[in-house]
Each structure stands twice: as C-alpha cells, then as structure tokens.
Design a protein around this nucleic acid. Structure first.
Lengths: 143, 143
DNA sequence: ATCTATGCAAAGACTTTGCATATCC
DNA sequence: GGATATGCAAAGTCTTTGCATAGAT
C-alpha cells in the first residue's frame, strides 16, 4: 500500500518509532470497511498481535489523530470511532438501525461561507461537523 | 413561567410525578444561559436542593429528553450537554476557546432535500446534526 | 393506599495515567 | 546507548442499575 510508506514517513518525521503495534493498528484501519471503535480495533488487532493492550491502542490513536493520519468521529453513541483520514473533506450518514457509517461528499459549508453567514454571526469558523441519521438502503429493503 | 405549566402537564400526561427534584432541574435549565452538562446541572441544583443525587439528575434528564422537554446535545468533548428544547429547529456554533455553545437558525438541510440529494444516496434521513466549531466574537476581541 | 421517585452504593463502559521493562533506531 | 513505546495495573470520568425507603396523587 503506497499509503503505508507515507504513514511511516509521517511517524518518523514526528519523532515516533514504527512499532509492530502501530503497524497492526494502521493495518486494521486500512481495510476501510468503516470507522471502528477502540474496542473494535482491539479485537481486530488482537487476532494479529495477541497481547496488545488497550492503553497502547488509545495512546497510538491519539498520536495518529494528532499527526492527521487518523480521523476521530464523534457519533452520538457514547464512544469514539476512528478511521484513516482521507484526503477529501466529507461528512457522514449514519444508519439508526444497523449503525453503518458511510462517507458522503456533500458539504453544506461552502454555501454558508459564500452567503457571508459567519460575518453576520461574528464567528470565525474553524471546523464543522455534519451528520445525517436515518435508515440506509439495506435496512429499508429488509423491511 | 408559562413554560412551566406546560412542562407539568406533559409530565402528568406521561404518568410522571412532579417532584421537587424535577422542579429544580427544570428551573436550572430554564435560565437559558446555555446547555449544561449533568455535572453543571448537579452543581446548580445542589444550591437549591442540597442532597440531590446524580442518579436522580440522570434519570430525570432521560425522562425529560424522552418527553421532548429537554434536548440532548452531543458536543465532541466526551460528555452530554442538556438544554430546554426550543420549538424551533436549530444548530449550534461552539467556541473552541471558551466552550460557549450558541444556537443558530441556519440550517443547510432543506437545500439538500430540495436538490434530491437523499434520493441519490438511497438514504432515508430522519435527523441531522450540524455544528460549527471556531472562535466566538468575545474570544476574538480578547486577543 | 398505591405506584412512582429518590438516595445510596455499587458497578459498568470508556478512557487515561504512572511506572518499570522492552523495543526501536 | 539513549530515547521512545509497551504492558500492566490502577485510577479517573461519565453514566447506569438494584434495592430499600420516601414521597406524590
């Protein structure tokens, strides 16, 4: 994976070592089948590297987020979800039935900027989140 | 407060009693100076009703949310924020410096619906969240 | 009187931290 | 060899639950 090389470089440049644990965590996230909770990452990773500890997972996720390699999502279910940070800006649709989280490239933000909405509010926007909860097509077809 | 009467009725209709604890919790939320965490509600309420317990706070917030009296916000800081539910649909701007949360009545959702974005996605939207993080005017003027 | 609500205490879920040892470069 | 990372264990934060008692209608 060409991404891997990139990740290794970013880690090194940040003064971080490339440990087995970091490799398997990044591998786990690389399957791209959706954001995972720390718990899920622990399960996946434990298959390849039994003995890994939760603190290692959390510490590394924090570093990877700081380096911009991983994205931390705040889905409203009481815990954090993590995924490899893509290059493209995006948002999410979340299924209320199966919990599936899917990226969408629709972003309403640019429109608001072009309409000078933030000048009106006297607010300097830095970041934004937009999530849509509902029922995905799979779950609807099951009904 | 005319709202109070309304709340009392909703509680009664739901089969819930109007206890002192519920009164003070609702009073605390009624100052409208921003969503409060369970912790903050506990502090405010403790002044008026010392001896109240966290479990009472949480149990009642859950009921009040279920009845639509209170709104539960998932701001990305690891805990839940609660406020009296307003009648109007709205979103929030959140200051990264002081943590202040302010309602805005800008909503990008209608636009997306009118553009048939959800038919394209084959997704049935039910709810959505839109939050903008940045620096509020107060914090900027301090700089 | 009856049913619901509360306080207390305990536990549960998720996450963070301190420290000695192991690992990477 | 020196600095960073890990595992372990413990604790910290937020929230939930069981149960006996108190309180509302």
């Amino acid at each position: 994976m060409s991404d891997r090389i990139n990740v290794e470089e970013i880690l090194k440049n940040g003064g971080y070592k490339l440990t087995k644990q970091r490799k398997v965590i990044i591998e786990a996230l690389s399957d791209n089948s959706g954001p995972y909770t720390a718990n899920e990452i622990f399960s996946i990773v434990s298959d390849k590297y039994s003995g890994i500890n939760f603190s290692t997972i959390y510490r590394n996720l924090e570093i990877l987020v700081k380096l911009g390699i991983v994205e931390k999502l705040n889905i409203s279910d009481g815990c954090c979800h993590f995924k490899l940070a893509g290059s493209k800006h995006h948002h999410h649709i979340i299924c209320n039935k199966c919990g599936n989280i899917t990226e969408i490239d629709i972003c309403p933000f640019g429109d608001l900027v072009s309409k000078n909405k933030f000048e009106e509010l006297d607010f300097e926007p830095i970041e934004h989140r937009f999530e849509i909860y509902g029922i995905c097509s799979k779950c609807r077809s099951k009904e």
